Computed example of a mutant assay.
Amino acid sequence: MLKIPLALFALALLPLTGCDTAPPPEIAPVQGFQLERYQGRWYEIARLDHRFERGLQAVSADYSRNADGSIRVVNRGFDATTSSWREAVGKAWFNGPADVASLKVSFFSPFYGGYHVAALDPGYRWAVVVGPDKDYLWLLSRDKQPAADAKPALLSVAARLGVPADKLIWVRQDRGDN
């Protein structure tokens, strides 16, 4: 596996729009958030297109607690054009109380971007994440192939946020090595 901690890939799952870490005005991050339940691996099921992540397959994100109280973020995806994996390691902090799913993430200090969980399955099986604005949206799942009821739920949230389903890119997760 080729590790490429590229700044561009770091931006893939974290847009830095003027280093804005606040959620978009019309987005209310999940309240009652439990980091302990959110930790672990999430698979990117769908996303809005942007140049930083274009062409990546088998994209995943791993979250774990660092000793200093921050959150370790490892984003990983397969670039089929180069037949190589790209990986970026970052650090996240809550923007406010730890039970509100609004964070700031950095892959290269001192630049931070917003990461906001706009919707979360009660069993922490799927999540809808937005960046500093609704031009950045990711549908995440604990499973490479989410349960049948997850996709309609994710699409419902995306529609409620004003994101048309035809704009989503559905991510291939069929590589066995992610």
Rank of each mutant, 00 (worst) to 15 (best):
G90Y: 05
L48G: 00
I169A: 06
K144Y: 04
P152N: 11
L8C: 09
Q57E: 12
Q57F: 00
K3A: 08
L137M: 10
K144V: 09
R65G: 00
A58D: 14
D79A: 13
L155P: 00
T82Q: 09
A165F: 01
P122V: 14
P25R: 15
A150R: 05
D121C: 07
P146M: 09
A118V: 01
A92P: 00
P132F: 03
P23F: 05
D20P: 01
L35K: 03
K3T: 15
S106P: 01
T82Y: 02
Y63N: 04
L56E: 06
L139Y: 08
S60C: 11
L2K: 10
A127D: 04
V128C: 09
E26D: 11
V128R: 10
V30Y: 05
P164A: 10
D166I: 02
S84P: 01
G96F: 06
G77A: 10
A80D: 06
T82V: 09
A148R: 12
A101M: 11
D79E: 14
G114S: 07
I45W: 13
L6G: 13
I45E: 13
R76Q: 14
L13M: 15
P29R: 01
V89A: 13
K167G: 08
A10F: 06
K167T: 13
G32I: 12
S70E: 04
A159N: 09
Q57K: 15
G90S: 11
G40C: 05
G113T: 01
L35A: 14
R76E: 11
P5L: 12
A58T: 08
G114Q: 02
V30M: 06
D68T: 11
F108A: 12
T17Y: 02
G96K: 13
K134W: 00
H116R: 08
A150T: 15
D133Q: 11
E87F: 05
I45K: 14
S156C: 09
L8D: 07
F107L: 06
W170M: 03
D121K: 02
L161N: 04
P25K: 15
Y115M: 03
K167L: 14
F78A: 06
T82L: 10
P23W: 05
G55E: 08
V163K: 11
L56F: 14
E36Q: 12
S64W: 03
V130R: 03
F33C: 09
M1L: 12
Y63S: 06
A98L: 04
L154G: 04
K151C: 03
L168G: 02
K134H: 06
G77N: 07
L137W: 03
R47A: 08
A22W: 07
L103M: 15
A58R: 10
D62L: 06
G113F: 01
G176S: 09
S70A: 13
P122F: 03
P110E: 00
D177T: 15
L155E: 13
D149N: 12
A150V: 12
V157Y: 00
A12F: 08
F111C: 12
W93G: 04
P5A: 09
Y115T: 01
A92K: 03
V171C: 01
E44D: 07
G96R: 13
F108Y: 09
G176P: 07
V73P: 14
G77V: 06
A127L: 00
K91Y: 02
